[in-house]
Design a protein around this nucleic acid. Structure first.
Lengths: 282, 282
DNA sequence: GCATATCGATGCCTGCGCGGTATCGATCGG
DNA sequence: CCGATCGATACCGCGCAGGCATCGATATGC
């Protein structure tokens, strides 16, 4: 199976429409139809059920979508990492570390400081991204190592080391009735009709339904909390960079959040190893 | 990057010889040279340092070998798993479970029994293989789920659930001086000049140097122990199928061995989920 | 109910690129 | 210095990917 065929298949499987998929791929529809047909013949499996009005995935197709995405990610990751190591030879080597913007800020600072002190430390490019994106960055080679937060981020398929575990706090606008409490429960948080929970984007970028505001990052979120439009439950460490207008109250029954450092399981990179060492030593 | 190019690259990287690599690939040397050259140009990286007498990997080449193998495995795994799910639709679905021949026999039997009792259980094909091979089987899709033994097998990149943890015992021919002891230490085992430790094959099939006999599986090993040519340290559960001629003595300071059930992190398969459930429930 | 639009499949053609043969050029051994 | 080894290059032919035109099926509008 060639990566070209896989790319074509994934495009059709995602669009469920040959014409749009072809457009996305920058080719015309006929060769795409033929490529998929040929792939099906070679695999001995029907991947799509198609009428002239509708295209649906078969079970075999669903399997190929899942596995094929992983395979394609692995291929482009290989490509990117080779490019980067080649560049590294003509300059100071560098690693890309992905972290959620705003999360684990203090930990990240300490980590970078500790690693920089190591002899032969590489330049660390920090890639701050939205929640749920680090996984993809790590999988397709745009990042070499990432800070993830269990149980929110999936660590499936990566090697990890635990760094810190912390409880969660409710972040409220100052002056809210609950802001003087010493502790609240999740049930109380969810029943706050005046401060509906914010809605985060799914993998595909769409938002679930609900009354709360749509948010993409912590800066937005902080602003919306300060404006009294929402409240949110976050790991304790956010306390560090909250201003005067926001208040934290521990949530007694929220799950513990563990920050882990994660990397692709076969990483050969000395820089990644050094970062992991610096992280776990600190 | 096309999988064909990756396959070519891996062949050359493994052989470090264009002629032999071409032969292995079933093509002639010139197109192979061109394919590699083109790949290097497209990646903007030199992958091999070649004189007319010697080919060596560059650092970028080493990275591509590592990542490229993983990527190729992912591609062929996708292919195999699609083929298998398509077959499964025209008959009873089946899962392939890989386990080291001879290891965890009792656990495996219990697991299969428990799973068979589930409603809608798939047929389980058991693939008994040599030590260190399960990882590859799972990675390239020949197996869907495997029983691994930490810390011997690498679980990097898989999802796992721990099943049992056990100590290790020294397996000796009956009548050996140490066979009457209630416990021994690793130091004692290693100093047994009359019974040198057996040598297991590496990934590539070659054997390390040393005085002990070369072994490929537990049956061979058991026979060699019985013949008084070697001794070995194995998890306790081997006691179950040792005959009269072999004796076990607990090793006080050997690492604990954990048997885990492992599967590719994105597995969609109900059968795999069922097996994992049966394993952890038992 | 007929005309029309939509959409995937098919037939046909062209050009690129993969693979083969022949050969060159560099390096090492005798 | 000659020959053997091995990767690179030149040249050629064929297969296949991709484009255009069109077909057949199905849902939609008047």
């Amino acid at each position: 199976m060639e990566t070209r065929e896989l790319t074509y298949f994934v495009a059709v499987a995602e669009e469920l429409h040959f014409g749009r998929a072809a457009e996305r791929l920058g080719i015309t529809q006929p060769p795409l139809s033929r490529a998929i047909g040929q792939l099906e013949r070679r695999l001995g499996a029907t991947l799509f059920e198609r009428t002239s009005r509708q295209v649906t995935l078969t079970e075999a197709g669903a399997v190929l979508l899942q596995e094929g995405r992983a395979a394609l990610d692995a291929v482009v990751a290989a490509e990117r990492r080779v490019r980067r190591t080649a560049q590294a030879l003509t300059g100071r080597p560098s690693v890309v570390l992905a972290s959620k913007a705003g999360a684990s800020a203090e930990l990240l600072a300490k980590l970078l400081h500790a690693y920089d002190a190591e002899p032969g430390a590489a330049a660390v490019e920090v890639l701050l991204c939205g929640p749920g994106q680090q996984e993809g960055l790590l999988r397709d080679g745009r990042a070499d190592v990432a800070l993830l937060h269990r149980p929110f981020d999936s660590i499936a398929g990566f090697d990890t080391e635990e760094l810190v575990t912390e409880g969660q706090v409710l972040v409220l606008p100052a002056g809210h009735p609950l802001s003087t409490r010493t502790s609240v429960t999740l049930a109380e948080v969810e029943s706050l009709a005046d401060l509906p929970q914010p809605r985060w984007p799914r993998r595909d970028g769409s938002y679930p339904d609900g009354p709360g505001p749509e948010v993409r990052d912590l800066t937005q979120l902080r602003q919306l909390v300060a404006l009294g439009r929402t409240c949110t439950v976050l790991p304790e460490s956010v306390r560090a960079d909250l201003g005067e207008t926001l208040v934290c109250v521990p949530v007694s029954d929220a799950v513990q959040v563990t920050t882990v450092i994660a990397w692709p399981p076969h990483s050969r990179s000395k820089a990644v190893a050094g970062l992991v060492r610096a992280a776990t030593a600190g």
